[in-house]
Design a protein around this nucleic acid. Structure first.
Lengths: 347, 347
DNA sequence: CTGTTAGCGCGTTCAT
DNA sequence: ATGAACGCGCTAACAG
């Protein structure tokens, strides 16, 4: 039937333990015997049984990555970067680790379910990406789960998500508040006074922080914060389109729109064009994240660049213990304001 | 230390076997005892040991997804769709399956490595997405690996990749050739006679098929197939930009550019604009795939829409045995020509 | 440097 | 409907 380590041992005239040592490369083995074992492995087309190894060694080579939506490049870029760093020292099919990507859709329930599943797999590490839902009950449940994971030896890293104290999780938080503030300040500096804001979904840390930044900039410039100029919606193109139409209806004198992210901004641009408004001559538009397509929008999108790849890679390295965690277990990753053609002076 | 099934059994005053049956829900268990067991599970915060289950049951709930680049929405959309279908019948943290996403970067070596890793994990199914490298040696190696996987009971589905005969793998192939042909035919119908073609990387099935479609359209319209009008490059924005500059140098009388995919097309648009050329007044541009951002390009991109989500979902269902495999194990998924503003009559 | 001996934690017969 | 016993395939001491 299926060939086992014992079969390999028999064929190579050694003990199963020796085969194991050769395959894991952790103990010294004479070159000659190693050769013999490897030949037997090839001859028999032997493939190690992962579950059995994991059971015996009480560790696995699975790394969990929780994302809101893997179809969104924001998460795809982070996930790809993480993956590029979780490989072991290389060698044959040796040090490799596998990335388990879990689409939570932003639902705390699914987040919990997936964390349990990863715990069940005895994942070597878990990386949670993107903003968290701001619900006390769920936050507590997730914090509890994270604590149990770290206690069991699973490294937990939050990437683009605020710290979760007392859980042992390392956090690389994005400076959404600061980025949002600089972005709106840029618009106010251009003379805009009626700035619409398309916020992300309610009760999300990312949404709140970006919005707080926006409001901080308004306050700093002494501009009135009109609640009618803020509309909430999901992080998709459609939301940007609809919200912009709504904002235009509420405030025809709008001269600028700040979107929750670049994807939403693209929808906003489409809505403006469909209304016969020029960008930026009539209305300026700004996004957030600086996804790859944003520079190719017409006009190119003013936005806040988040170093998604770097952050994901760093999260991966920390999760693998290749890089030291930041002091206090928390680091803030800053964005960079990218001023492009989609914003200009108010008409 | 870590709580095991035996601990739960002791607390619930039943045998380990009964606990196992309750957790797997496959055997009849008296409601009363079930309750008792579940309470013990909660009390103890017990989480099943995945590797141990997998070893004992000789199956795992891992599903492998091989992609070229998870940061590319093309693959992200497919991966997300697959994930949405691999969940089991639901229930508690029961029927869930985990998606292992493997970034191969298009390298056959890494593809093989990951397949071996998934084989090692005894993955329940493996889904390979996107075009394959056309190298006889690697193709044979991969076919061999796929055969061994299917023989071991792992379901293998190819999504957006040509069939791999004699391997037991089910294939959902995209009609890249037909789509490419219709796209170029559309341009020729608009009067274009000098059409530049930015092809994908060499030795890739997707690249070859789309290019063959392009050439078939040229032939059908009696248009000369000038080798100087074809440039190869990777599937990224930069490649589109550079290739377009090169094409313009080679053939200043160019009136249209067909790109290997939408991302490349975006780069092509940028290059044209930087040269002071208008789209489509001076040069028409067309892409492939119809990714979400393509409709928001300015002008909106003419392209071939591939039902990525549907294809991924179907691949996931077939991999899970929820949907029957197509007759002969092979189905062709067709694209739809989306005519938008980026193409118009030749100047 | 290599062989021997025990489990790792669970699913699954076979009984009852 | 439940319990007892065995083994899945491998790693980790412990000798030697």
């Amino acid at each position: 039937m299926t060939v086992t380590l014992a079969d390999v041992a028999a064929r190579a005239q050694v003990s199963p333990a020796t085969v194991s040592r050769v395959l894991n490369g952790n103990y010294p083995v004479a070159a000659a015997t190693r050769e013999r074992v490897l030949r037997a492995v090839d001859d028999l087309d032997y493939v190690l049984n992962g579950p059995a190894s994991a059971l015996a060694a009480a560790t696995s080579d699975l790394v969990g990555i929780l994302v809101n939506d893997i179809a969104d490049p924001f998460f795809g870029i982070i996930a790809g970067a993480v993956q590029s760093e979780i490989g072991g020292p290389g060698g044959r099919a040796g040090g490799e680790r596998l990335a388990v990507v879990c689409n939570t859709g932003g639902s705390p329930e699914r987040e919990l379910t997936y964390l349990t599943l990863l715990q069940r797999q005895r994942a070597a590490a878990v990386i949670l990406t993107g903003g968290a839902v701001e619900d006390a009950e769920h936050a507590a449940a997730i914090a509890g789960k994270l604590r149990r994971l770290t206690e069991a030896g699973t490294r937990v890293v939050l990437c683009g998500r605020p710290p979760s104290p007392e859980t042992g999780a390392v956090a690389l938080a994005f400076d959404n508040r600061g980025g949002g503030k600089r972005l709106t300040a840029h618009l106010l500096g251009l003379g805009h006074r009626h700035v619409g804001y398309i916020a992300g979904p309610r009760e999300r840390t990312t949404t709140r922080h970006r919005l707080e930044g926006h409001r901080a900039a308004l306050a700093a410039h002494g501009v009135d914060d009109d609640p009618a100029l803020v509309v909430h919606g999901p992080y998709d193109r459609r939301s940007g389109y609809d919200a912009t139409s709504e904002l235009l209806r509420r405030a025809p004198d709008l001269t600028a729109v700040v979107a929750a992210n670049d994807t939403v901004a693209l929808g906003a641009c489409a809505a403006l064009r469909d209304q016969g408004l020029r960008i930026p001559a009539d209305v300026s538009v700004a996004g957030f994240d600086d996804l790859p397509f944003s520079v190719d929008a017409v006009p190119a999108l003013t936005t806040v660049r988040l170093p998604l790849h770097e952050a994901g890679a760093r999260a991966g390295r920390i999760a693998m213990g290749k890089e030291e965690a930041p002091p206090g277990g928390v680091a803030t990753v800053h964005g960079e304001l990218m001023v492009r053609g989609s914003t200009a002076g108010a008409r």
